[in-house]
């Protein structure tokens, strides 16, 4: 568990490395100038899945809990946002906050059984059931959700300005994603993040040195829910159609793929994983029909050969990255 402050690096260079984080979004500001409309959409979708991966990773990688409710958080965020925009014509920032909040509440709710001592496979199965139950609710609460046809979400508005093009959305998304990723990074580097790690590595030991494990567990799930719920909100604004089938078990497998292929407990890994798997249909364009098989094989290969995911490749290539963003 090295890699954070105090591993021998001096403070100044560590602070400098922190600023490197902000270079990436800055560099990305110019991206729309060089890409077309279709690629812009894929990039926006990638940003959505970056949050999905980053949020999921908090529970999966950092807290080490086998929770399968991520597609549910994603859907709850999307539905909360879509419902407010569709029924109440809410402005996008408000609907976005509602999506994040709903995701966070769902996260806290899912943490409750964990407090009752339900762990590992039991938690997995229970959260799996929760996700499927949510899908049933989307279909049957049709007065609010419009049932299985889903909702046609109106164009998002930002302080009276309508976000029409994917480039408009891109800058909003980039800002939201950058903020949440930075916040997650800070959270994980803090005392709270270390508590998550302690719980993952040995819960009993963590409890015995006075870490209030229950409180941290709820916090981790809730934060994961906030991040993934926000991803759902962005999804609603991007695709502008929210329907139950978008949050099924296949979607969940994609979320797992992003985290595992990118690298467990690695923020940069989740970003990489999201980029790789969102672009997957492009990569497999010459092999139609093979996408599922190839993604599955990619997951098996990563699990067997590169348990730390693609992030470990980055770590090998860049000492700065390794020192700051990678733990082994």
């Amino acid at each position: 568990m090295t890699g954070t402050a105090g591993s021998g690096t001096d403070r100044a260079s560590f602070a400098a490395s922190g600023r490197v984080f902000w270079l990436l979004p800055l560099a990305l500001l110019g991206l729309p100038l060089v890409i077309g409309s279709y690629v812009q959409y894929i990039v926006n979708l990638t940003l959505v899945y970056v949050l999905v991966g980053v949020g999921f990773n908090v529970v999966l990688g950092n807290l080490g809990q086998l929770a399968f409710a991520n597609a549910a958080f994603f859907g709850i965020g999307a539905y909360a946002t879509g419902t407010l925009m569709y029924h109440l014509k809410a402005p996008f920032p408000l609907a976005l906050c509602a999506g994040a909040l709903a995701g966070g509440l769902a996260g806290a709710l899912v943490a409750l059984p964990a407090l009752r001592g339900i762990r590992a496979f039991y938690l997995a199965i229970m959260t799996l059931a929760f996700g499927e139950l949510m899908r049933w609710i989307y279909i049957n609460a049709d007065a609010v959700t419009l049932g299985s046809m889903g909702m046609q979400v109106p164009r998002p508005t930002l302080f009276g300005y309508v976000l029409v093009t994917d480039v408009d959305k891109y800058y909003v998304f980039l800002a939201v994603v950058t903020l949440l990723v930075a916040a997650t990074a800070n959270l994980l580097r803090s005392r709270v993040g270390r508590a998550f790690t302690a719980i993952r590595d040995n819960e009993l030991a963590a409890a015995s040195i006075g870490i209030p494990t229950a409180r941290y567990m709820v916090l981790a799930f809730a934060w994961s829910g906030v991040v993934v719920g926000t991803a759902g909100a962005l999804y609603a604004a991007l695709v502008r159609h929210v329907s139950p089938e978008a949050f099924n078990l296949l979607e969940l497998i994609l979320h797992f793929g992003i985290v595992m292929v990118g690298g467990l407990a690695s923020l940069a890994g989740s970003i990489l994983g999201a980029a790789v798997l969102t672009a997957a249909p492009e990569m497999f364009r010459d092999l139609p029909g093979y996408e599922e098989l190839l993604i599955a094989i990619l997951m098996v290969a990563v699990l067997l050969l590169m348990p730390k995911g693609l992030a470990s490749l980055l770590a090998r290539a860049s000492p700065l990255f390794r020192q700051r963003y990678f733990r082994d």
């Binding site: 077309g36 409309s37 279709y38 690629v39 959409y41 894929i42 979708l45 299985s148 046809m149 889903g150 994917d166 999804y235 991007l238 695709v239 502008r240 159609h241 329907s243 089938e245 978008a246 249909p281 996408e291």
Partner: peptide, 30 residues
């Protein structure tokens, strides 16, 4: 693959990337 996010992507690809004259298809109502 009957996935909405991918469906929007495919529409944008055909319109902006492949620059098709027209679109003839659409299966899965959602």
């Amino acid at each position: 693959a009957c996935n909405e996010a991918k469906g929007v992507a495919v529409a944008k690809k055909l319109i902006h990337e492949d620059k098709v004259f027209l679109i003839n298809g659409g299966i899965c109502s959602g």
